[in-house]
Simulated scan of single mutants.
Amino acid sequence: MKKLIYIIFGFIIGAVLTYYFCPRPSDDIQAMETKIIKPKGVISVNDAIALNNNWTNERKKANDSAAKKFGRNKDNRSTWWSIDDIENYLAYAKHKSDSLGYTMTGIQIYLGVYGKNAGQKKKNLTTMFIAPTGDKSVSKGSMSPFNSTVRLGGNPPVPPLNNGSGGSGNFPQ
Rank of each mutant, 00 (worst) to 15 (best):
K2T: 07
K2N: 08
K3C: 05
L4R: 08
L4M: 10
Y6G: 08
Y6A: 06
Y6M: 03
I7C: 09
I8V: 15
I8Y: 13
F11Y: 13
I12V: 07
G14P: 08
G14A: 09
G14N: 05
Y19N: 13
Y19W: 13
F21M: 15
P23N: 06
P23Y: 15
R24T: 11
D27S: 09
D28S: 15
D28H: 14
I29M: 10
I29N: 04
Q30Y: 11
E33I: 12
K38D: 15
K38Q: 12
P39C: 10
P39Y: 14
I43W: 00
I43P: 00
V45P: 07
N46E: 10
A50P: 02
A50I: 10
A50K: 12
N53A: 12
N53T: 13
N54F: 03
N54T: 04
N57W: 05
N57Y: 06
N57A: 07
N57P: 07
E58V: 09
R59D: 09
R59A: 07
R59P: 11
R59E: 10
N63D: 14
A66Q: 06
A67L: 03
F70G: 10
G71F: 02
R72E: 01
N73M: 11
D75T: 06
D75I: 02
R77S: 12
R77H: 15
R77I: 15
S78E: 06
T79R: 04
W80I: 14
W80D: 12
W81N: 00
I83P: 12
I83N: 13
D84T: 12
D84F: 06
I86Q: 03
E87W: 02
E87F: 03
E87K: 14
Y89G: 01
L90R: 07
A91R: 09
Y92K: 00
K94F: 11
K94Y: 11
K96P: 13
K96F: 13
D98V: 05
D98I: 08
S99L: 13
T103F: 14
T105L: 07
T105A: 04
T105F: 03
G106K: 04
G106P: 04
Q108G: 14
I109R: 01
Y110V: 01
Y110A: 01
L111I: 15
L111A: 14
V113G: 10
Y114H: 14
Y114R: 11
G115Q: 08
A118Q: 08
A118P: 05
G119F: 02
G119R: 06
Q120N: 11
Q120G: 14
K121F: 14
K122M: 09
K122N: 12
K122R: 08
N124S: 06
L125S: 05
M128V: 06
F129H: 02
F129C: 00
I130H: 00
I130D: 00
A131Y: 01
A131H: 00
D135P: 00
K136R: 05
S137Q: 13
V138F: 01
V138D: 06
K140R: 09
G141V: 15
S142Q: 03
P145A: 04
F146K: 15
S148I: 14
V150G: 09
L152I: 11
G154H: 02
P159L: 00
N162F: 08
N163I: 04
S165N: 07
S165D: 05
G167L: 08
G167M: 10
P172D: 03
Q173D: 07
Q173A: 07
Q173K: 13
Q173I: 08
